[in-house]
C-alpha cells in the first residue's frame, strides 16, 4: 500500500523524489477519466474542496474545480474580490470561518509567500498551495514534469532552460526544485534585473542571454512577464524585453533536436513567445500542459483525502 506522508502539499522544496513520482504516476492513471463520455468517478463523494483565491486566476482555479468535480467532490470557489475579504477580514479569520463549516481540503492562492504554510499550521484541513507570492506553485511544476515525462520519456538527464522573469516567478522556483530533484540539468536566463542574486545556489546555471541558455536544451520553458508584480521598473519597455527574450523561430535552431516549448500561461503573445512558435504543434506543448493540469490536480486531491491511519 502507498501513502503520501503529509497532510498538506505546500511546495516542491519539501517533497521527496518518491512523493513526486507517486503524484506523477497517479496522475497518469487519472488522464483516462477526462477522455470518457461520463467524466466522473465517485471517489471523493461527500468531500468538500474550497478554492480560496486571493489573486486572479482562470486556469489554475478552473483546473482545480474540474479536478474536484471529476472526483465527485463538492467544490466551492471563493475569490477575494467577492467575499468578506473586501470588508477587511484577515486570512486567518476567513480560514477559521471556513474551517467551522468542515470542508476537507482548502486550495489557497495568495499574494504573500508563506500564506498556505501559515494556514496549514492553524487549521486541521489539508491545504494545497495553488501559488503563494513569488515562492512556489507546486501543481504547476508537477504538471510541467508530467508533460516533460510524457513528451521526452524521462526527466533525468534532460537539459531544461527556464527563460524570463526568474525573480518574480513561483513557477520557476517550483520547477527548479522539482526538476533538479528528478535529475534534470536546469539553466535559467533573463535580464539581470529579473535574476535573483543567489539563484545559482539552487543548483542551476544562470545566463543573461537566451541564446546561451537554450543551446542544446531539450525543454525550453518560457515565463510570463508579471505586470502585476512589477512594482519598480525592471526593464525599459515591453518592446525592448521582446527584442532580447522573445522566443522565436530563429531560436529553435539552437536548441536540441525535437526540443519542446512550454509556457505556464497566460501568454503575452509577441512578448515572451512569438505566435508562430506558441501555435506550432511540432514544438509547443502549451495545451498539453493545461490538459495534464487536471489529471495532476485530481491526483493531489485524491492522495490527500482519506483518513489518518
Amino acid at each position: 500500500m502507498i501513502k503520501l506522508g503529509k497532510k498538506d502539499i505546500l511546495g516542491i522544496q519539501e517533497m521527496t523524489t518518491d512523493e513526486i513520482s507517486l503524484i506523477l504516476e497517479t496522475a497518469e492513471s487519472f488522464l483516462e477519466i477526462s477522455t470518457r463520455e461520463i467524466k466522473k468517478v465517485p471517489t471523493l463523494r461527500g468531500k468538500s474542496v474550497i478554492n480560496l483565491f486571493y489573486e486572479a486566476s482562470t486556469r489554475t482555479r478552473t483546473s482545480f474545480e474540474i479536478a474536484g468535480k471529476r472526483l465527485s467532490a463538492d467544490t466551492i470557489n471563493i475569490s477575494a474580490s467577492t467575499s468578506s475579504v473586501v470588508k477587511g477580514e484577515t486570512l486567518l479569520d476567513t480560514a477559521r470561518t471556513l474551517e467551522a463549516m468542515n470542508p476537507d481540503i482548502i486550495v489557497l492562492r495568495h499574494s504573500a509567500a508563506g500564506a498556505p504554510h501559515l494556514l496549514a499550521r492553524m487549521v486541521s484541513q489539508s491545504i494545497i498551495n495553488a501559488g503563494d507570492g513569488a515562492h512556489e506553485h507546486p501543481s504547476q511544476a508537477l504538471l510541467d514534469m508530467m508533460t516533460i515525462k510524457e513528451k521526452k520519456g524521462r526527466i533525468a538527464g534532460l537539459k531544461v532552460a527556464i527563460v524570463g522573469d526568474i525573480l518574480h516567478s513561483r513557477v520557476a522556483r517550483s520547477n527548479i526544485y522539482g526538476l533538479t530533484k528528478m535529475g534534470a540539468r536546469v539553466v535559467v536566463a533573463g535580464p539581470a534585473t529579473m535574476m535573483p542574486r543567489d539563484i545559482e545556489r539552487m543548483g542551476v546555471k544562470a545566463y543573461t542571454k537566451i541564446e546561451e541558455a537554450i543551446a542544446d536544451a531539450d525543454v525550453v520553458m518560457m515565463l510570463r512577464i508579471q505586470m502585476e508584480r512589477q512594482k519598480q521598473n525592471v526593464f525599459p519597455s515591453l518592446r525592448e524585453y521582446a527584442q532580447h527574450y522573445c522566443l522565436s523561430r530563429r531560436h529553435m535552431k539552437l536548441t536540441g533536436l525535437d526540443a519542446i516549448v512550454m509556457h505556464p500561461g497566460p501568454i503575452n503573445r509577441g512578448v515572451e513567445i512569438s505566435p508562430d512558435i506558441a501555435d506550432d504543434p511540432a514544438c509547443s506543448v502549451i495545451l498539453d500542459q493545461v490538459n495534464k493540469g487536471v489529471a495532476v490536480r485530481m491526483a493531489m486531491l485524491y492522495l490527500l483525502s482519506g483518513g489518518n491511519e
Binding site: M1, K3, T26, S29, P42, G46, Y302, S305, G306, E309
Partner: peptide, 15 residues
C-alpha cells in the same frame, strides 16, 4: 476509484 473503503483509509493501493 470505485471502492467503498477509500475514504476510510489514508493508505491506498497504487492506482
Amino acid at each position: 476509484l470505485y471502492r467503498d473503503d477509500i475514504a476510510k483509509s489514508g493508505k491506498k493501493a497504487p492506482l
